[in-house]
Nucleic acid binder design. Structure first.
Lengths: 254, 254
DNA sequence: CGACGACTTGACATCGATCAAGCGAGGTGG
DNA sequence: CCACCTCGCTTGATCGATGTCAAGTCGTCG
């Protein structure tokens, strides 16, 4: 766990700090947040950008080392928040597609700290927390948009947690897949066919099941017609009946 | 489900609206919130009090009928928030002891609406939402204290949800009992021996288990020494090792 | 007294975890 | 190019954990 931060630092491309690079890197962020409010000029965010990096492999970023003064935003790819129990069990608390803020804290009080893992080939933008908060404080529109966006995330997470406590495995997985789809669409992936951004092991840690059982349950969902698969991509057939049974609401993409 | 609101109204004691009654009814609220900030004068809250009522039996208050313009505070007794799945499954999302606000919304965006059930013999204070928010807006200290209190609740809930997804039954129940103890102590119950404010069925809906399994798991926890029982009251022996295994933190009472 | 709800207990069924083996894609080094 | 490895995934066999159903006790309330 200890060498992680330096490994993380080593993988960054320090030279990518020109304004054009910053523009390219925060376009997904601005595009996503912009759905929740008007953003006058994305360039105001430039001074808060600390670094831009690409993950060569799945890379955990440990909360106690990095979260206090940095804010991480997914530019491309996928990330998830997790915490570990002493017995080695891993719990994945939330998922992040392009444009998502991985450790914005104001909604839930910033008290429950989770680590974040970026999946391989993901590009992330690192903001200085203090500077970003300063800039946001001067831009009420931007601030409101971010808060609304994070509120939606918080709500979706609570909806998922509720189902993961109360429902059987097939419903848990269906609910989680709907959430993943919602997150991918919020990130701008308007393609109806999507590929799974997580391994079965990670899906297991997200749903509280084992990877083996996820594999079997996926097949059942496929047999039931909820999942349609085409090669490595899949599509969900979530008719209103299923959504009602899961008490599911969309919070990002309609 | 439809006659519920009128049943709820019928049970109230309309005559209890003198200032002395209001004082008596919000003392638990003020005492609890006061742990999170200075409250100059509790009497400023009087104009926001709509009614004071005592529940003769377990009484659900349905969100879609009552939550929009009312805020419910437990004065004495116990309450819990719940939602229902179409198949009849009930999920209990949070628990409230004396002094707790049952439907304060600003922390998590007020989007995930849950119903609230007050247990028999509980006394509740009903505030007019708009007036309470006006008063609070003019009292930054009070507002901050409430927000901090609700942040702590939100955090504790997230901690519990995480464990309820990832952990086996014994750990789930132990975690939940610790939370109940935390809530009771935050309400001022400094007695080390406490009695269970929920039925086994409700504990099941809170943990995602069945009442039968709760019964057996309680016995196991008793055999393991975590629970010490004396008549109907019990005490928890949560040594640091257990708390570490559950990754448990206190958020209200130390 | 009877009715009812909370709880317990036992027998059994089902769900999901665990362990082990094998397959295939992708990466690495010779 | 091949040999070899690792990782993600699948499948089967088996075990343990949890749910379901049913019966019975106890206390409370009318």
């Amino acid at each position: 766990m200890n060498g992680s931060q330096s490994a993380f630092l080593r993988q960054e491309s320090e030279f990518r700090s020109a304004d054009t690079d910053k523009d390219a890197a925060i376009v997904s962020f601005v595009g996503r947040i912009g759905q929740f409010g008007q953003i006058a000029d994305a360039a105001v965010l430039h001074p808060a950008v600390d670094r831009i990096g690409v993950m060569q492999r799945d890379q955990p970023i440990w909360a106690e080392q990095n979260h206090a003064d940095r804010i991480f935003v997914v530019d491309t790819g996928f990330a998830f928040a997790f915490s570990l129990y002493p017995d080695g069990r891993r719990h994945i608390g939330d998922i992040f597609a392009a444009g998502a803020i991985c450790n914005w804290s104001s909604v839930w009080g910033g008290m429950l700290i989770e680590n974040v893992t970026f999946k391989a080939r993901s590009r992330l933008v690192v903001f200085r927390r203090d500077r970003l908060l300063e800039i946001v404080a001067e831009q009420p529109e931007l601030h409101g948009a971010i808060e609304r966006h994070e509120n939606a995330r918080c709500h979706r997470r609570q909806q998922r947690c509720r189902g993961l406590i109360a429902l059987p495995a097939m419903d848990r997985l269906a609910l989680t897949l709907l959430d993943i789809q919602d997150e991918l669409r919020a990130a701008g992936g308007d393609d109806e066919w999507m590929s799974l951004p997580l391994t079965l092991r990670e899906l297991g840690d997200l749903t509280g099941l084992t990877d083996v059982h996820i594999s079997r349950t996926l097949r059942k969902l496929q047999d039931s017609g909820f999942i349609e698969k085409r090669g490595k991509r899949f599509r969900l057939h979530a008719d209103p009946g299923i959504k009602a049974a899961l008490d599911y609401q969309h919070f990002f993409a309609g």
